[in-house]
């Protein structure tokens, strides 16, 4: 059962986070944290003509929060903002409402097991809520 939470992909993204850097010329920089657990991330987005051309993050915290944010960066890079908003909605609904996603979430499905651990859902959603806020700022 624990393997459904800590899938190899998650451990891999925790140990070797992708796009773990700062973007100096970012369009938006957004911080997110879970004060109760001490999970922290900073998300950098570079947007050109409605498209996320680069994305990165920095942070510290549990495996779930960091791996989820790492996967996030891989997922949204090169996508249109509108498409990303849809993915964010589907991803959050999968974890918080247990909804079957209506689009293919690909690698993100590795995080589906988190929904069986209610106390940990906020770890998995931290990066995504931060992304939501960041996208609002772009308009």
């Amino acid at each position: 059962m624990i393997d459904s939470l800590y899938r190899d992909l998650i451990i891999d993204h925790y140990k070797f986070p992708r796009n773990f850097r700062r973007i100096e010329s970012a369009t938006v920089v957004k911080e997110g944290d879970n004060p109760l657990c001490g999970d922290k991330i900073t998300l950098y987005l570079k947007v050109e003509n409605g498209k996320v051309v680069d994305v990165s993050f920095e942070g510290s915290g549990c495996a779930i929060s960091q791996a989820s944010t790492s996967l996030l960066t891989e997922t949204v890079k090169g996508k249109q903002v509108e498409e990303i908003k849809c993915i964010v909605g589907e991803f959050l609904a999968m974890l918080t409402e247990g909804k079957q996603p209506s689009v293919d979430l690909g690698k993100l499905l590795a995080l589906e097991g988190v929904k069986n651990y209610p106390m940990r859902v906020k770890c998995a959603t931290l990066g995504w809520h931060t992304l939501e806020q960041a996208l609002k700022e772009i308009g």
Binding site: M1, I2, L5, Y6, K15, C37, G61, C62, A63, I64, Y117, M119, R120, C123
Partner: peptide
Amino acid sequence: DGVHPHDVATILGN
């Protein structure tokens, strides 16, 4: 080492 306390508690809790 290398594991956040919340992950430790989740695995033990399991």
